[in-house]
Amino acid sequence: MIIMNYNMLSVLLAFIIMELYNLRRLISNKESIKVLITYVVITASSLVIGLLLAAGRRPASPAEWIQWIFKMIGVVK
């Protein structure tokens, strides 16, 4: 049983609609495949993270990775 955060879902939904709309423009603009891939990757990653957050399964965040790296180097205690 996954408890979903509905506010988060509605925010995600709003963004998805916007990005799908944007995707249409992107295709009609005849942008290069590189642009398309970048766009899809960013959108998909934010979607996945958003869904995980909505489900309450927060993965370790970049901030934590960065902190970990700095701890390894020894800059931050």
Partner: peptide, 14 residues
């Protein structure tokens, strides 16, 4: 829009 969306998600995630 996709960068803003990403950064919003990131801000909640981070």
């Amino acid at each position: 829009s996709c960068i803003v969306a990403f950064s919003v998600i990131l801000s909640l995630w981070i």
